[in-house]
Design a protein around this nucleic acid. Structure first.
Lengths: 346, 346
DNA sequence: TTGAAAGCGCTAACAT
DNA sequence: ATGTTAGCGCTTTCAA
C-alpha cells in the first residue's frame, strides 16, 4: 500500500466506479448530477467516499476560471476595529462556499500593492479592500482590471467604485452636538490621517458642526495614524496650543485613548477636566477606564454588507458601483461629562 | 482593442518577446533565469511588464504541486486573543511569499472540518490550527494526511503533532502564588472548557499549586466557553457555593471579565472584595476598569513561531513533531489586591 | 445517459 | 541557450 498516489484524482474515482472520468465529474458536481443515471451516481459517490476523494481546487479553478477565493486587505488585523468586520465578511463568504485570503498592509501603499498582486496571481474572484486612500492609484488601476472590487470602511474621493463605509459625517455631528448639550464650548478635534476618507470626512463634519453651533474655532490636529500613540502626540500639541479646551472629538477610539493619555500627562482627568468622544465603539470600549463615549459603527455589518456587495458584483460584473452608508449611533458613556466650572472659558 | 483576452498568458509574453513559452517561463522565474541569455532575459521581462503579465497561480500550483497558500483555522477572529497571533503568522508567511487563508470555526468541530476540507481542496501547502480539542479526530486524520500541520495555542493529548502553545502550567502557578502572597487563602478557579488543552492544563496546575500551598480546596468551575458570559455564569455558581472566596483565577481574560461581572452582581467590588487574575493579557487589558492582573502570553510570537515551524515542516516533511512552549509572565495590575479584612475567613 | 477529446496556463524533462 | 513535448487534474463541448 505504501508508495501509492498522494491523493486520489477524479480518474481514480472513475476507475473504481467503472465509469469515464467525465461521468464521475458530472456525478460529483451538484449542478450536473441530475444528468447522470441514479445508479451510476450512487456508484461514483461511493467510490469517491471510499477513496477519500477531494477535488483539486487548483485544477477546477484553472478550468472554470473561478477560484472560490476572495482576497481582503486591511490595514492591520491587530487593530480592534477590523476583527468584527473580517468576521462579518467571513461568515457571508463561507455560506457561499468561498474562502478568505487575508493580509495586513500597515497602511503602506507598496506593501498593499504587493499583497493585492499576490491575491490577483492567486486568481481571487474578488477583492475586499479596507486600506484605500482618498487618492489611491492602486484602486484606480484595479477599477479597470476585471476583478470585482469593494472598498470597506474607507472610500476614494473619485467614486466609481463600490464601497461600504460608516456615515462619518453624521457621526462627528452627533459627537459635537452631544458635547454642546453637555455645556462644552471649547471643543477640539484630534483626527485620523487626512489621506483617508474617514479622517477627512470626520474633520469636515466636525468643522461644519462647530460652525453651525457658533462655537469658537478650536484646535484641530491630524494624527499620523489611527492609533493611541499618534493620538497622544497630537492631543499633546492640541492641549498646548488651546489650553482652554474642555472636550475633544477623536477620529477613532484608539485616538481617543491617546487623547485621554495626553490629558492625564497634563494633569487633566477624563471626564472631569476633559471630555473625549471616540469613534467606532471597538471591542471593550465600554469596559475601559473611563468607559468610552463613542459613535458606534456596526463593524460586523460593514463586513457583511461588503461581502454581499462583492458577491453581487461577482455574479454580475456589469452591476454599477454603489456606496452603502452605515449609520452610527452615539453611545454615551463615562468619558464625557459637563465641563468643570473652573475650566469653563469666560 | 476591445474584446482582447482578459489577461495575458505566458504565451502572449513569449510571442511579444519572440521566444518560446518555455523560455519565457525560465526568464520570469527567479530560479531559472540564469539559464537564459541576458539579452533574451531582458526582452522577456520587458514584454511581461509591457503587457502587464501576471502569472496564473492556479496553473503554477497545478503543475508544481505548491499553491503558496497556508490555511489557518481559529475559533474566532473577533476574540481578542487571536488577532495578534494571526498577525504574527501573517508576517512570517508574507516574507516567504505565502498567503494566508483564514477561517473562524466557533469551536464547532463540524464547521472546522468543513473549513479544513475547503482549505485542503484549495491545495494549501500547510495548516495552522488553533481550534484543536484535547481529543480531536480531525487532527488525528490530518496527521496521516501529507499536509504539514502545526497546532497553535492549543494542543492535543496524544502528541505526535507539532504545536506552539503557552506554558499554561507555569502561568496558573504564578497566578496562584501572586494571590497567596497578597494574603488570599480562599482561591477559586473559573476555567475554560476542559476539552481544550488550555482549559485542562490551567486547571491542573491551579489544583497542584493550591495543594502544594496547603490551601483549602475551593470552588473550581468549568465555563462552557472562553468568553465573558460563560465566565459570569460560572463565577455566579462559584460565588454562591463558596461565598468565602476572596480571589479567583480565571482561565483567560474574557472569563476574568465575567468573574468581575458576577462579583459586581453580588455587590462584590474588584479588587476590594474580590481579586481576579486573567490569562493572556489581551489587547487593552491594562486599560480596563480595573486594569487586569493577568498572565501575559506572547500572542504575536505564538503566531510567528507557529508559522516558522510550519514552514520548516513544509520544507522537510520528515521533520519530527515538536512542541514549543512559550512562557508567560505575570502582569500585576489593578484587579488584584490584599483581601479585605472583613472578608478574610476565620 | 455516457464516452471521447480538447484545453485551462503553466513548468520541466528532454532534445537540439 | 532555446525549442519541443508532455502533463498537472479538472470541466465541458460534442458525439454516440
Amino acid at each position: 500500500m505504501t508508495g501509492s498516489r498522494p491523493s486520489p484524482r477524479l480518474k481514480d474515482v472513475a476507475d473504481a466506479a467503472g465509469v469515464h472520468v467525465s461521468t464521475a465529474s458530472r456525478a460529483l458536481n451538484e449542478r450536473t448530477a441530475v444528468l447522470v443515471n441514479p445508479g451510476t451516481l450512487e456508484r461514483v459517490r461511493e467510490a469517491a467516499t471510499g477513496l477519500g476523494y477531494r477535488v483539486n481546487g487548483m485544477a477546477r479553478a484553472l478550468k472554470m476560471r473561478r477560484s472560490l477565493f476572495i482576497g481582503m486587505v486591511i490595514p492591520d488585523i491587530a487593530n480592534p476595529f477590523f476583527p468584527p468586520a473580517v468576521r462579518g465578511a467571513e461568515d457571508v463568504l463561507e455560506r457561499r462556499g468561498l474562502s478568505l485570503l487575508l493580509s495586513s498592509s500597515d497602511n503602506d501603499p507598496a506593501k498593499a500593492r504587493r499583497q493585492v498582486t499576490a491575491m490577483l496571481e492567486g486568481q481571487v474572484d474578488g477583492l475586499l479592500l479596507a486600506m484605500a486612500r482618498r487618492e489611491d492609484p492602486l484602486v484606480d488601476e484595479l477599477r479597470g482590471g476585471g476583478t470585482p472590487l469593494v472598498l470597506m470602511n474607507r472610500t476614494v474621493d473619485g467614486g466609481g467604485v463600490s464601497a461600504v463605509v460608516p456615515d462619518d459625517f453624521n457621526g462627528s455631528l452627533q459627537a459635537v452636538e452631544h458635547l454642546y448639550a453637555l455645556g462644552h464650548r471649547q471643543i477640539g478635534f484630534v483626527g485620523g490621517p487626512l489621506f483617508t476618507s474617514n479622517g477627512m470626512r470626520r474633520l469636515a463634519s466636525f468643522e461644519q458642526a462647530v460652525r453651525s453651533l457658533g462655537l469658537p474655532d478650536g484646535g484641530k490636529i491630524e494624527a499620523t495614524a489611527f492609533n493611541e500613540a499618534s493620538g497622544c502626540a497630537a492631543a499633546g500639541r492640541l492641549l498646548a496650543a488651546y489650553p482652554e479646551t474642555t472636550a475633544v472629538v477623536a477620529g477613532n477610539d484608539l485616538l481617543a485613548l491617546g487623547v485621554i493619555d495626553a490629558g492625564a500627562q497634563r494633569g487633566l482627568s477624563c471626564p472631569r477636566d476633559l471630555s473625549v468622544v471616540g469613534f467606532n465603539d471597538m471591542l471593550l470600549a465600554g469596559r475601559l477606564q473611563p468607559p468610552l463615549t463613542t459613535i458606534r459603527v456596526p463593524e460586523y455589518d460593514v463586513g457583511v454588507r461588503s461581502a454581499e456587495l462583492l458577491l453581487a458584483l461577482v455574479e454580475d460584473p456589469s452591476r454599477p458601483p454603489e456606496t452603502v452608508l452605515l449609520s452610527g449611533e452615539l453611545k454615551v458613556r463615562g468619558s464625557t461629562a459637563a465641563p468643570a466650572p473652573g475650566r469653563r472659558p469666560g
